[in-house]
Design a protein around this nucleic acid. Structure first.
Length: 297
DNA sequence: CTTTCTGTTAGAAA
DNA sequence: ATTTCTAACAGAAA
């Protein structure tokens, strides 16, 4: 499910519960998820063994994020990389608490593991479940950070919008090297990371720029508005714990609330909340895209 | 019942 | 080189 705000919210919510915990045992119930990323994955017993033995008996020292990837850094120098893709979920359960994140499923608060729990990490004080209804996600083990860099896993990724280094000049510079429509630019992660279908549309609306616009046609004022919209929207979404649905919970038991702030996502055909004009729907870069032809130019 | 849609992205096809 | 399409899969909605 997650775009940057959801992954970041999940990271923050898990942090206090898993930091400094030792992984005592790892169960892999769907081996292809730990073998590689991409389509047509084959399960590999070698990879599975490497994954399990690499992680067992190590301690989680850091939990960080790059784009929509979650990165567990271990005391051994090893790295666990998790990408939730569409429906991945990391849920931590201990005797007293249950923290869920990612794409929620009906009974995740009461029953764990459930039929979609495919990788299970037993920690000293609880259990971390990786659930994934559509099985698109992946969990990869690297024996070192060097190894992770070598494989160029994050090769083409663009700027991190929540970092200090995300500045207007650099954003403009990178954007100017691109062509094609704005929606595509936001979805492909090469200039700026973290936007998905929801936030791409929300950013375009807030900036007052049509997602159909060719990047080449944007003037400096529009680029500035887009830059600020990205920052404002992502910061606010993280503040509110992300946009998920149903029983998405944060570490303190509160719920992600940004979905109530969506102006265009999921509202095609309904009146624009600002001007009342009927919101348009089209396909762009293969994804449903919603916008207001009055508020966006 | 069938068909369509869905928060992602790698890799193939064009 | 660059852009678009499809596959990976399951389930909810229409």
């Amino acid at each position: 499910m997650p775009e940057l705000p959801e992954v970041e919210s999940l990271r923050r919510s898990l942090l206090p519960y898993i930091l400094d915990q030792k992984i005592t045992k790892v169960e892999v119930l769907l081996p292809k998820l730990v073998s590689s990323k991409g389509t047509a994955r084959q399960e590999s017993s070698e990879k599975t063994q490497e994954f399990i033995s690499g992680l067992e008996n190590s301690q989680i020292k850091k939990l960080t994020r790059r784009a929509k990837n979650m990165i567990f850094e271990l005391d051994t120098g090893g790295i666990l990389l998790v990408h939730l893709k569409m429906t991945g979920q990391l849920v931590f359960k201990d005797k007293n608490h249950l923290i869920t994140g990612g794409h929620p499923i009906q009974d995740s608060e009461t029953t764990l593991p459930n039929k979609h729990s495919y990788v299970i990490f037993h920690l000293e004080n609880g259990t971390l479940y990786y659930n994934d209804v559509r099985k698109f996600g992946y969990l990869l083990y690297f024996s070192s950070k060097i190894k992770l860099d070598d494989e160029e896993h994050f090769g083409d990724l663009g700027m991190e919008p929540l970092e200090e280094s995300f500045n207007e000049e650099e954003f403009k510079k990178r954007l100017k090297t691109k062509s094609g429509n704005l929606k595509k630019l936001f979805l492909d992660q090469k200039v700026v990371v973290g936007l998905g279908n929801i936030y791409a549309d929300e950013v375009c609306f807030t900036a007052g720029v049509l997602p159909t616009r060719n990047v080449k046609s944007l003037n400096d004022k529009e680029i500035k508005k887009l830059f600020h919209a990205i920052k404002i929207i992502l910061v606010k979404a993280v503040d509110l714990g992300g946009s998920s649905i149903a029983n998405y919970l944060l570490g303190d038991g509160s719920r992600g609330n940004y979905a109530h702030h969506h102006k265009v996502y999921g509202r095609g055909g309904k009146p624009c909340l600002v001007c009342g004009n009927t919101l348009s729907v089209t396909q762009l870069a293969g994804r449903t895209t919603v916008f207001c032809t009055v508020c966006q130019k």
